[in-house]
């Protein structure tokens, strides 16, 4: 191999690393090969989660509590009466609020003080989480039938399934008149993630070996792993207000509002050393 050939390889290698895989900064000099390995696992949802709200609202506090208790009991009895295997219902905390009239809400939305009787209605409410496990063993028809039963029972018993009416304005304003009722989730996230990690490392190793081969160096052991994108990559995200997001939890990134496979993606930045030959 001539000097000229070496020079060409070196230039190409440098260009490749600087534009695709390896981004270095002046402050972060590395002596090795750093690549981004990505692992993607498509998994079938195992859980369906529905949120509902039990509400008791009245002029008198005692009435509000009576209504709340009655509505809660009815709702839970109705859901339990379905006797659907794997379906659980769980309260997520009672809240007591002063309920505003629609006119007062309108005033506040216009940036004006709310008019009217300050001693308005009292609202006692509690979000309920209805969780159905074992979804992966159901076919679409079965799942649909089960969901319809739950939603029907909820509606029959007066649970507000999905978004509360107070949040509806978001949907009206955004022109979205369909609100999601169910969320499909993974219960075995860690297991799927582990597989995705393995795949990401394997992917990183494949890339690094390729680079080493091209560069004519020998790939050494891994010297560092960082999860996430490479530094300097544009990670800016624009987050729009979505009231539904208030109900998200840590696992919501592995959630879909549609019945389809959920993709678990792991991105790892892996540093390999170069072994002197």
């Amino acid at each position: 191999m001539t000097l000229r050939h070496h020079l060409v390889h070196t230039v190409l290698f440098s260009a490749f690393v600087s534009t695709t895989c390896l981004t270095t900064t002046q402050a972060e000099e590395r002596s090795g090969i750093t690549v981004m390995g990505v692992g993607k696992i498509d998994a079938k949802p195992t859980i369906v989660e529905l949120t509902g709200t039990i509400n008791g609202e009245a002029e008198l506090a005692g009435d509000a509590v009576t209504k709340f208790r009655g509505n809660r009991q009815t709702a839970i009895e109705a859901i339990e009466a379905l006797e659907i295997p794997g379906l659980t219902i769980e309260g997520t905390g009672v809240s007591v609020n002063s309920a505003m009239t629609q006119q007062q809400m309108q005033a506040i939305m216009q940036g004006m003080p709310a008019q009217g009787d300050s001693a308005g209605k009292l609202a006692v409410s509690e979000p309920l989480k209805l969780t159905l496990v074992g979804v992966e063993d159901m076919d679409t028809e079965q799942l649909l039938e089960t969901l319809v039963k739950i939603v029907d029972a909820g509606k029959d018993s007066g649970i507000v399934i999905g978004t509360m009416p107070t949040n509806m304005n978001f949907y009206y304003r955004s022109g979205n008149t369909r609100t999601p009722l169910a969320k499909f989730k993974l219960s075995n996230v860690n297991e799927v993630k582990a597989r995705a990690y393995e795949q990401a490392i394997a992917d990183a190793r494949t890339q690094a070996e390729r680079l080493a081969e091209i560069s004519g160096v020998k790939l050494g052991p891994i010297t560092g792993i960082r999860e996430g994108n490479l530094p300097g990559k544009n990670n800016q995200q624009v987050v729009y207000y979505n009231p539904y997001m208030q109900q998200q939890d840590d696992d919501d990134q592995f959630t879909s509002t549609d019945l389809r496979d959920i993709t678990v993606t792991i991105s790892l930045q892996v540093d390999f050393s170069i072994v002197e030959e």
């Binding site: 009245a58 005692g62 007066g158």
Partner: peptide, 10 residues
């Protein structure tokens, strides 16, 4: 005059 029971209906 007490509320004895209440049921939410559609």
């Amino acid at each position: 005059q007490k509320l004895r029971w209440a049921r939410r209906l559609p």
